[in-house]
């Protein structure tokens, strides 16, 4: 694919990526041939209505799911050929996830939830440092049930960045939050992208967020319908909806 060479380093590369779910007699084509290149340190927003295939793409990129057909690469690694163990190692070493509903372990404190990841990552930062990055040093001994939704999501951000991942994949990180809290979380993600140079993909169906990205990929019906390049990123702190 020499023709696609770019002056920046390419992190993800997909061609003709297809995913079909079969549940009983129902066949759902979640992805219908997605071609995509994501670059180092880039902050990309995936925009689109629910059911357009954004989450499926993110799951495949993060090694949580496998495509039905097509090509998916992380740097020189072919994600479609990795076995279970290799995918586990890939997630452990390179990927940080942030989910809409935080997915914290309720029986662990904020710091321990971060430690859950730093315990097994090759070059992690201290959990306390990761929490400091998202402004939660004061709340580190609190259990998820003692934290607000925004705080829980910031713990999830800290957990994702604590391993110093090469890619940060965020699925509707502000979907369950109000505007003010959502901005705080986005700022934390933005900081990680800027300060750690982490390639970041953020899924949202909230167009107001789009302005913070380098590029916006508009999804429709399992395909990338439109790619918009943003010449100047707006700081997350300036966003509101």
């Amino acid at each position: 694919m020499a023709s696609l060479a770019d002056d920046r380093k390419r992190v993800f590369f997909t061609r003709g990526l297809t995913k079909v779910y079969v549940t009983g007699t129902v066949v759902v084509e979640a992805l219908r041939g997605v071609d995509l290149d994501l670059y180092d340190s880039e902050l990309v927003l995936l925009l689109g209505p629910s059911g357009s295939g954004k989450s499926t793409l993110l799951n495949i990129l993060g090694g949580l799911d496998r495509p039905t057909a097509g090509e998916a690469r992380f740097r020189e690694h072919d994600l479609t050929r990795m076995d279970e163990a290799a995918l586990t190692a890939f997630r452990r070493e390179h990927v940080g996830f942030i989910f809409q509903f935080y997915n914290l372990i309720p029986s662990l404190t904020a710091e321990e939830n971060v430690a859950l990841v730093s315990d097994i990552a090759p070059h992690p930062m201290a959990p306390a440092d990761a929490l400091a990055l998202v402004g939660l040093s004061e709340r580190r001994s609190h259990f998820p049930s003692q934290l607000s939704g925004g705080e829980q999501q910031r713990v999830a951000v800290a957990r994702a960045i604590a391993k110093r991942p090469e890619v940060l994949l965020c699925d509707e990180p502000t979907g369950a939050l109000d505007s003010r809290t959502g901005v705080v979380v986005l700022a934390a993600i933005e900081a990680a992208n800027r300060e750690l140079g982490t390639t970041t993909v953020v899924i949202t169906h909230n167009a107001a967020i789009a302005a913070m990205g380098d590029r916006i990929l508009r999804f429709h019906d399992g395909r990338v319908a439109e790619v918009i390049t943003n010449p100047s990123r707006r700081p997350a702190a300036e966003l509101s909806w």
């Binding site: 949580l64 997630r91 452990r92 990841v117 097994i120 990552a121």
Partner: peptide, 9 residues
């Protein structure tokens, strides 16, 4: 979640 974070089977 554990598996997403990289914990193996």
């Amino acid at each position: 979640l554990l598996k997403a974070c990289g914990y193996g089977n």
